Amino acid sequence: MLRDDLRAFWTEPRPPDAPVRVWRDWVLVVAVLSGVVSEAVLRTDVVWLPVAVTESVWLCVLTLWRRTRPLAVAAAGFGSIIVLQVLSVVFAAPEPVGLYSALVVLILVYALPRWGSGREIVSGGALILTTFVLSVLTDDIPVADQIGGFVFLLMPAVVGASVRFWDAARERQVERARSVERERIARELHDTVAHHVSAMVIRAQAGRVVAATDPAAAVVALEGVEEEGARTLEEMRAMVAALRDSRTTGADLAPQAGVADLGRLLRSHAGHLRVDLDLDGELASLSPAVDAAVYRIVQESVTNAMRHAVEATEVVVRVVGEPRRVRVTVTDDGARTGRGRAGYGLTGLHERAALLGGRLRAGPGTDRGWQVEAELPKGRTDGRVHSRPRR
């Protein structure tokens, strides 16, 4: 287990889409350079002032590439510190060489676990640890100060790793939201196509029956097929476009059909079954998600009845708005057969109801036929995940 965890850490890639530079980088550069100038002018105790100024400016400039080249800038920054430490020992500098502004190197410590890959974090961490050990060996520092200095050096790395973990968790949450949304749109696409294609088949069959005796009626049927086909293509284009958008997290598509559209929906099912619609109670205050879900449940249930009901003559659709819930019942009077195989349509109805905090049951009716019953909360709305700027 530990070996697998270490291997996973070693092969961890860099976080994707790291920003090159943002306005905060330039503010940091200006602030550090201002500090360098102030120290160069005001301080009189600096050893090797030109070298110390050059070192601080070099570390400041390196921060501009800390996100895109975290290991390279860490190597360049701490490598220069190692060189400076060696030179101070060789030439016996009376005091440590450097300015307070050189503390900007802690930004590079933060950037390494925040933006580096697993290999870069290990390699850069070894270099930083080497720099610290060399500093301890070359400077006469008490043990307590050594421990404090190590904690001080480690804290930016801990913060960087924490921010990276938080950002990765948020990205996973956003991706889950995207997946749920794409599944929802896929169900919408299935429901829409199934409904329209069923209506087209029924109209085409009706046109074929009356073609020989009533050509005008056949033309009307063909016009209905054309209209259904055009509507299907229009809705498919919108939904497929949303599915192709990898950043979809709840995009507002064309207005979705709802309870108010049920009359038009059921009139389009003019075929061998009579469809009765009964709307009762308060249905105007449904949330958009529940409103669309009621429409799709009725659409899929009626479509299934048209396709599969044996010896059926009537489908009864009843939608009742209660104070806190809405109940949907779709029943046909066909023969009670083993019509229980769950395709994507029926599976989608169960998933849709569960997603909204409701429930759905589909099975043989009490006396005969098939019955779909759904109960949905009236106030449930779709959740949305908003992305935030990355640090």
Rank of each mutant, 00 (worst) to 15 (best):
V32N: 00
D17Y: 06
G348W: 13
D140Q: 10
A293K: 06
R7I: 10
G321R: 09
V29H: 01
V36R: 01
L153G: 08
H269M: 15
T249P: 00
L28H: 09
D245H: 09
A52M: 02
P13N: 03
A169V: 12
R361M: 10
A292R: 12
R391M: 12
T131A: 11
R324T: 11
E12Q: 09
S135D: 14
G250F: 06
H190R: 02
R390V: 14
L134K: 00
V57Q: 02
V330P: 04
A177E: 13
D333K: 09
R114A: 03
W23T: 07
R182L: 12
Y110E: 00
R244H: 11
L233N: 11
L233D: 15
L59S: 04
F152E: 03
V259D: 01
V180I: 15
D276T: 13
A186D: 05
I121Y: 01
E234F: 07
G116Q: 03
R3D: 13
V73E: 04
F91L: 15
R43I: 02
L106G: 01
Q256G: 10
S117P: 03
F78M: 08
F9H: 04
S301L: 03
T366I: 11
S198I: 06
A144D: 09
G207E: 01
T347C: 02
D382S: 13
V36M: 07
R3Y: 07
R296K: 04
R247H: 13
L127V: 10
Q256D: 14
V143R: 13
L28K: 00
L233G: 06
A74W: 01
R391I: 13
W48I: 00
V143Q: 12
D45P: 09
G271C: 04
A72E: 15
L33F: 06
H350I: 12
A309C: 05
V53E: 10
R14C: 00
D261V: 06
V174R: 12
E375V: 15
D17T: 05
G343L: 04
R380Y: 04
F78R: 07
A75P: 00
Q146V: 08
F152R: 08
V133C: 05
R391A: 14
F132C: 08
G343H: 07
D276R: 14
L2K: 09
A93S: 15
T249S: 09
A206M: 07
E375K: 03
L376T: 03
N304S: 08
G281R: 08
A242G: 02
D382W: 08
V73L: 06
V159L: 11
V294Y: 12
E235N: 12
V30C: 06
A270S: 12
R237L: 13
I128F: 09
G343Q: 05
R339S: 12
R231T: 10
L137N: 01
A177R: 15
A241S: 14
R368V: 04
A293Q: 02
V315A: 05
A354V: 14
E351Y: 10
P377I: 04
L33Q: 03
